[in-house]
């Protein structure tokens, strides 16, 4: 053994910011997360040059996966131009030299907060979702140690009870985003705060989804072709947001998840949440040649 085998050349910063040991830990945990879909795997979660709660979990996964030929897309609330998405995209590109894109079809890696793009993801694409709170049981059990035991026992009774009480009180499940879902018939997970509109996109999808919570230090995953079933009662079916009939005021796109824009006269208009899909729709209307991917929803409906 020589000194050279024990040392390496000085670098001002590791490639992709994270040092090799941080990456290895995340790799090991990602593999376990894939092996047990929907089960939260604890990891050390290094501090990165971004505040906790701002996508540091997703960022660590992306930094581990990045290489100079992976094209990355970053969205926040569906938009590429959202300030935090811009900040994360700039950071990823700066530390990895990877090319960026706004187009879902061109991306190899998509890091997202609160949305899944409207165009279907392919087998060769990886979706990284930022997760503020990885524990679906938190509303019924804030203590993480007890909640972990409940997952171990597949004890989801209180979760069901909570949903039942909502139906009794309000006639429906009142959960907005982050709809708790059963993965591979065993673990209840949060799909992260994506709208209910997006949860069915995870069910038997072609792509791999990795969900990472940096502040709470947990990774979970939904491998391709894995069952993701929102918790529902047989007689009260799962209901996505009633956006199927809405039209985007700016692009004319219809039948996708929308942002509601309040107007001075008390009414509302709507804009498509997947901003780049909106841009492509506008470009097409203006006569540009644009390539669209297949969408999960057709005419505002998700084919079953």
């Amino acid at each position: 053994m020589s000194l050279a085998t024990l040392t390496k050349n000085w670098e001002p910063m590791s490639y992709g910011f994270l040092d090799a040991s941080a990456k290895r830990e995340i790799r090991r945990k990602m593999l376990k997360a894939v092996a047990v879909p929907g089960c939260q795997m604890p990891y050390a979660s290094r501090e990165v040059p971004m505040a906790r709660g701002w996508g540091t979990g997703g960022l660590q996964v992306s930094l581990t996966l990045m290489n100079p030929s992976k094209r990355v897309k970053v969205i926040d609330q569906g938009a590429d131009d959202s300030v935090n998405a811009a900040s994360i995209r700039r950071f990823l590109a700066r530390v990895s030299g990877a090319p960026t894109t706004l187009d879902t079809l061109e991306a190899d890696l998509i890091q997202s907060r609160h949305r899944i793009p409207e165009e279907k993801l392919r087998e060769d694409q990886v979706l990284v979702l930022q997760v503020p709170n990885p524990e679906p049981l938190r509303p019924v059990q804030p203590n993480m140690s007890i909640a972990r035991q409940m997952h171990a026992d597949a004890d989801y009774g209180r979760m069901w009870l909570q949903l039942y009480e909502q139906i009794v009180r309000s006639g429906r499940v009142m959960q907005g985003a982050s709809y708790p879902s059963l993965v591979n018939g065993r673990h209840v997970m949060t799909p992260s705060p994506i709208p209910r509109w997006d949860v069915p996109k995870l069910h038997m999808a072609k792509h791999l989804t990795i969900l990472s919570a940096g502040r709470e230090k947990r990774i979970h995953a939904v491998p391709p072709f894995t069952r993701v079933e929102p918790l529902v009662f047989d007689d009260v079916p799962y209901k996505v947001e009633d956006h199927g009939g809405l039209t985007c005021n700016r692009s004319g796109a219809k039948g996708f998840f929308m942002n509601e824009i309040p107007q001075d006269d008390g009414s509302s208009t709507y804009e498509i949440s997947d901003s780049e899909f909106g841009v492509k729709t506008i470009k097409q209307a203006e006569g540009e040649r644009v390539e669209f991917g297949e969408t999960w929803y057709t005419d505002g409906e998700m084919p079953s």
Binding site: Q77, R113, I194, R196, R215
Partner: peptide, 21 residues
Amino acid sequence: SGFCIHFKLPHYVTFQSSLDA
């Protein structure tokens, strides 16, 4: 502190989802 200030980030998708319900 990070989580506290993260509430400044836009949450309009989750908000929209709650409004719908």
